[in-house]
Amino acid sequence: MTDAEPVLSLQNVHKAFGGVVAIEEFSLDLRAGQIVALVGDNGAGKSTLIKIISGVHTPTSGGIRLDGEPTAFADASSARSNGIEVVYQDLALADQQPVYMNMFLGRELTKQPFGLLDKSRMRQQTQTLVDELDIRIPSVNSTISDLSGGQRQGVAIARATHWASKLILLDEPTAALGVAETARVEELIISLKTKNLAILMVSHSLDQVFRLSDRICVLRRGVQIGIRETAKTDKNEIVSMITGVS
């Protein structure tokens, strides 16, 4: 598995906001079918890294390779059109719109001859996806604000899966969820591995990180402390890497 070509690799990525250095120097390979967990304390730079990969921020220096090709994403749209989808820490869903419109937000399907919205095709494709991923919502016509936190996160992840062809970035996907809902979303994340997608996940829950990930990458105040194979490390080691106290 580790010898497969990386889908995306970051090489010596450095990011500063004005004088503030958010990421010192960061390198990481992401491979299809693998979950990499990104951990670190508040302000370590995890969200900043996610935003660099998703095209929201451009790195101050360093390179990004997509399928081996050097790439620079001008904005979020260009990362998206390269098959990279993000599930944001604060959900990027439009609350008063139905599930199926959120699934196609900004990429609505239309039909000829007048280019009007093809709502029935959007509903139907959403239904298929929701069934496939076993996301339990009352209906694809439900308004997002009528759904529970777990159902919303399910919709956000389903949207990412629908559009991602290479990589899904998850920024604290279960931060706001209860125990049972977290378990559902974790099942969903594991099921994404079988879709041959690379997954990079930010999480503050080490239990979760150990349940889901193949590798763990630790950041501390913008410095990349190290990468460990999940099967070959333990919580104590990761905790001391995060805190710097051994």
Binding site: R80, V86, Y88, A94, T110, L117
Partner: peptide
């Protein structure tokens, strides 16, 4: 139309609309 959907999305959650392209 797409435009109508984008109007609603913008008023609903401008950030979500923006990151959705």
């Amino acid at each position: 139309t797409k435009f109508g959907a984008h109007v609603l999305a913008t008023g609903d959650n401008a950030r979500a609309a923006q990151v959705s392209g």
